[in-house]
Design a binder for these strands. Structure first.
Lengths: 238, 238
DNA sequence: CCAGTTGTTCTCATTATGAGATTGTCTCAT
DNA sequence: ATGAGACAATCTCATAATGAGAACAACTGG
């Protein structure tokens, strides 16, 4: 291994965060306008250098807070992957650890220390992103879609209590497909530990009519069993 | 972000590889005896520093070859995750990108440049490993178990042609559970693109009897649909 | 009050799974 | 050579899960 680290030129380690939420029935990602070189003025995922004595996870949480002004505490945060192509940063070798975060809809963030502006933006209508952040974002979206199949993490996009219809809207927004309301309802209530009834209902019906809906909280399951699979994607299998 | 990299103390980036194979019906991992400090003489996962102009994936393949003397070309290689706890290496801050590799059973490797010895070792009977490699290995094993459910990658543990029983043995070895032979057979042949018949059979029956088995090759599916799930793990769900 | 919307619960056909049994071919030990 | 046991491959049958559609009641805004 030739262990002496000084034999090797410096490498920088950063974290980048794909923070997702649902706004107005669309999947949105948090992006920041860069206030420093390189890519000054371009949009990018929030992120930055890992500090000397900081865990990677802590760095992701910190950057999310710093670059967006307010302390966004995601309901879910997981590692997405590492991106280390030698040319991905024009200035030096940078290896970035990407994170994926889910949270409920929040007020518009403020710009933070190193970002001129931070906004939620629909993922299907994005400006070009700096570095290889489009690739990271695509990987994050695909991971999110897959996570919704096998885990109850769709609830991380919702506030503490929610209705089955609100949960279905999360799935429809992330997957980009309409789901059968009756079957979805049956499925959600039949998977053990997915949601738990509160005994309460909404105070009014929907804005366009309909009865009051029962309210639920997230259950204690870590995995959905059986899974809630996307409508078959024959084409994508091969 | 305070972009100037020289503001930060040096960070080293390494790759570590969890290389798995099946030997004698048991899941084995490739480990090396370290020939350098730290942890000199301890067992560890193969790995080492990423070179200045090298992709992370390439570094993983290179280390696998270097440390084991012969060019092990895994049938499957994927990124497992990043491990960057500040204290994980006693000498300096090291962030390691872990990889997961599957391959068919191979002859015993030779020791490579920086390793005194390299051997395949059953995962359920391991000596203590250096650094946080036990945690990385456990994450790799769990990832492998899960991958076998949703992808046809079990074939990556087998040579070009194989029988359904050999494929079942892979599942049983990785999952550590016995499977119903008849149902497994039905399932493998019913999932589109999992395996393809060659029209050939084995030359003889099994060592203890039985008819000749039909031979198959890996199909072109990238995902199993429907998935081949492990027998229910009620306990592990919550 | 009316028309339209929506939450919730059914039904019914189809597909997938788990458990067990059957059949025929092969190897090994007698 | 023969019989015992192993094992590949296929089948049956009960149960579970899914997809599609319909029913019905509770609610909305006009």
């Amino acid at each position: 291994m030739g262990y002496n680290p000084r034999d090797y030129p410096p490498v920088a380690v950063t974290v980048d965060v794909v923070a997702l939420t649902i706004r107005d029935r669309r999947l949105n990602v948090l992006i920041v306008e860069r206030g420093v070189q390189p890519y000054l003025g371009h949009w990018a995922l929030p992120g930055g250098f890992v500090r000397p004595d900081e865990n990677l996870d802590d760095a992701a949480v910190r950057e999310l807070g710093e670059e967006t002004g307010l302390g966004i505490r995601p309901a879910h945060l997981e590692q997405l992957g590492s991106y280390g192509t030698p040319e991905r940063d024009p200035r030096m070798r940078v290896v970035s650890i990407a994170y994926l975060a889910f949270g409920p809809d929040l007020p518009d963030p403020m710009a933070g220390s190193d970002a001129a502006e931070a906004v939620w933006h629909p993922v299907d209508d994005l400006p070009p992103l700096a570095f290889d952040h489009e690739r990271i974002l695509n990987d994050g979206i695909e991971r999110a879609r897959s996570k919704l199949e096998y885990t109850p993490l769709a609830t991380a996009f919702l506030p503490g209590t929610f209705t089955v219809s609100e949960l279905r809207l999360i799935y429809e927004s992330v997957w980009g497909t309409a789901l059968h309301a009756g079957n979805f309802h049956r499925k959600v209530l039949s998977v053990p530990g997915f949601v738990e009834g509160t005994g309460e209902t909404t105070q009014t019906g929907g804005p366009k009519g309909g009865p009051r809906a029962k309210l639920y909280t997230a259950g204690d399951a870590k995995l959905l069993h059986p899974a809630l699979l996307r409508p078959s994607r024959e084409e994508e299998i091969r």
